[in-house]
Amino acid sequence: MDNKGFDEMLATNGPMLVRIAASYEMQPAAREDLLQDITLALWRALPQWRRDASVRSFVARIAHNRCVNHIVAQKRHRHEVAIDEAVIDHSADPHRDAVNHQRYERLQHALRRLPLGHRQAITLALEGFSHVEIADALSVKVNTVDARISRARRTLHDYLEERT
């Protein structure tokens, strides 16, 4: 894949990368660093991408791995901090923006409380990945994905109820 192809891949998957990065790192400067790491890792890993495999799953796998590495390298697990508003696309309707922001923050807060394996599976499900694609992206069996998503959804709803 050449530079143009890489840029196209980034353009297509960029919003997903930012959402995944935001589910691990809420501080804007640290998230920016994390996104740079993900971009570099994608660039390095591209030669290993099999053309028959889904590029979206490949990108998601690299992103989650970099994010796990980011957690490992953190001095300590950070406490929850407010999501900066830059994560949300702004529209002409400030009230709708505020509601979207609140709902997104509530969801991210709940997601970040999930165990790692559940969080990884459910963020990809929220992106619209099929269970087979999630299994491919996370290198686990499909029945593991089924079980994780089912449990994660239940737990997620409990956490969302708490935040209501």
Binding site: L10, V87, T123, L160
Partner: peptide
């Protein structure tokens, strides 16, 4: 109902940020 799976997916995907590829590529 606001926490139905469809709504959660919508909330999640509404978090699509503006994404400056050129700047990110440059920094990377």
């Amino acid at each position: 109902s606001r926490d139905s799976w469809e709504n959660l997916m919508r909330d999640w995907q509404a978090g699509s940020p503006s994404f400056d590829i050129a700047a990110l590529r440059k920094r990377a």
